[in-house]
């Protein structure tokens, strides 16, 4: 194979953002193995939050991967908070409507 090219990383000098994120996630495997099954589940959700936002991470070229990764995890957590807030609000409204709780 000619110098400087591999089938995985054809024609690239800088590894792709996706590749770098996956590599970083791969490095976390020993940490994941030592987590409880409940934590493990949540940890996977956090990592998938990073995966869902890889395009945005790629728009932020940086030497180290953790800043965009952490931003993506925070955003994922914030999204869940937002969903919960909405549900809470809707439940509160229903309870107010049926007179179980007061509006104030």
């Amino acid at each position: 194979m000619p110098y400087g090219c591999s089938s995985e990383n054809m024609g690239r000098t800088v590894p792709t953002w996706r590749g770098r994120v996956e590599q970083e996630i791969e490095r976390l495997v020993p940490y994941r193995r030592a987590l409880s099954s409940e934590d493990c589940c949540n940890f996977d959700i956090m990592l998938n939050d990073v995966r869902y936002r890889r395009a945005a991470g790629g728009m932020l070229p940086t030497q180290e991967e953790w800043k965009p990764m952490l931003l993506s995890m925070l955003l994922g957590a914030h999204q869940r908070i937002h969903i919960l807030e909405n549900r809470l609000e809707s439940l509160e409204r229903q309870l107010i409507d049926v007179g179980v709780i007061d509006e104030h």
Binding site: V14, Y52, Q63
Partner: peptide
């Protein structure tokens, strides 16, 4: 510079599908 390379050596945009 390494920073320029980080900025420029990128491909097209790919929005992850759900």
């Amino acid at each position: 510079s390494a920073w320029d390379l980080l900025q420029s050596d990128r491909g097209g945009l790919y929005l992850d599908s759900k």
